[in-house]
Computed example of a mutant assay.
Amino acid sequence: MPRRRELGRSDTVEGDSGDEPDYTVRAVERVCSILNLLQESIDGVSLIEVGQATELPKSSAFRYLWTLEAHRYVERTEDTGLYRLGLGFVGMQSRHLEVLRERARPWLERLRDEFDESTHLGILDGDRVIYVDIVHSRNRIRLASARGERDPLHSTALGKAVASRLSDTRVRELLGRTGMGALTDRTITSVEAFLDELARVRASGYAVDDEENECGARCVAAALPGTRLPAALGIGAPSTRLGPGDVERIAARLKEVSRQVSADPVPEQRGPAELG
């Protein structure tokens, strides 16, 4: 005779009452609450805030976060101790991301050597652009972005290039969530002005951050065509070395390389010396 499953407190049996059956699991609900809280945050949330949102004691909230962090769905910022969404959600297509990174890496190195400036691979992560890979310039004075760092869409070349692959409706939604704070006196702070900028990016095939994210820094980026993830390649440098007259030349090379990255086989089949 089959054993009868014992019912938990949240279980009901159809026909026992007129209420709809409740199949919710409290632990899963708490995980969803944590993830929703992180999704809505721009700068990250503290352990105390997670505990308050989930009605969990601090020690229990920490165990939830620790488990999610172990699976890369949450990451903790070392300097602030705040928690934010991790690459695990991009990891829903994690193999595709890894292949993309493997394809892009030799090209990032090659571009760094060609221009002697830092090169980046970025993707859309929630409502910001995240640096998936970086090859730093060998110059002592250089842009100091870090892998895993997240930047706004509206003020960065990578952000603009990634946003150019989205619909205007989606862009409005993301900007409405994050706001458009002025990081320098050149930052675009109007949604309509930003959409006009995206129209130029789509027409030209490249985006420019002209000291809009950081004074004294200029970046150029091009979206990767034909990928499942909104992604882009970029080159950034102090504006004293990357002047307005250099933008077209760098952009042309980035567009060429972006097309090649999308078309390349997995790098194990080719070495950097074979790359055209």
Rank of each mutant, 00 (worst) to 15 (best):
Q93D: 15
D133T: 01
Q52G: 03
F62Y: 15
L87I: 10
S59T: 14
L87Q: 09
R63P: 01
D116T: 01
Q93C: 07
W107R: 12
R147P: 08
W66D: 15
L82A: 11
S118C: 10
L108E: 06
E114R: 13
G122M: 09
D151G: 00
R140L: 08
S137P: 06
R112E: 08
L87V: 13
F89V: 14
R138A: 14
G91R: 09
P152V: 07
E98C: 00
P57M: 02
P57E: 09
L82F: 15
V129E: 00
V90E: 13
E55I: 02
R147S: 11
R112F: 01
G122E: 03
F62T: 00
V99Y: 10
A104T: 12
I123R: 09
V129D: 00
S145H: 11
A144F: 09
A61G: 01
R95P: 02
G86M: 06
E49D: 14
S60A: 15
G88W: 02
T67C: 03
L111H: 08
A53K: 12
D125T: 02
Y83D: 02
D127C: 09
F89S: 07
L97H: 04
A104E: 06
R138E: 09
L143M: 11
A61L: 08
R103D: 04
D127N: 07
E117K: 05
T77Y: 04
V132P: 01
T119V: 03
D127V: 08
V129K: 01
E78A: 13
R103M: 09
D133Q: 11
G86S: 00
Y83H: 06
P152W: 02
H71M: 11
T119S: 14
G86N: 02
L85H: 03
E98Q: 12
S60N: 05
R84M: 08
S59V: 12
P57K: 06
G88K: 04
V74L: 13
H71Q: 03
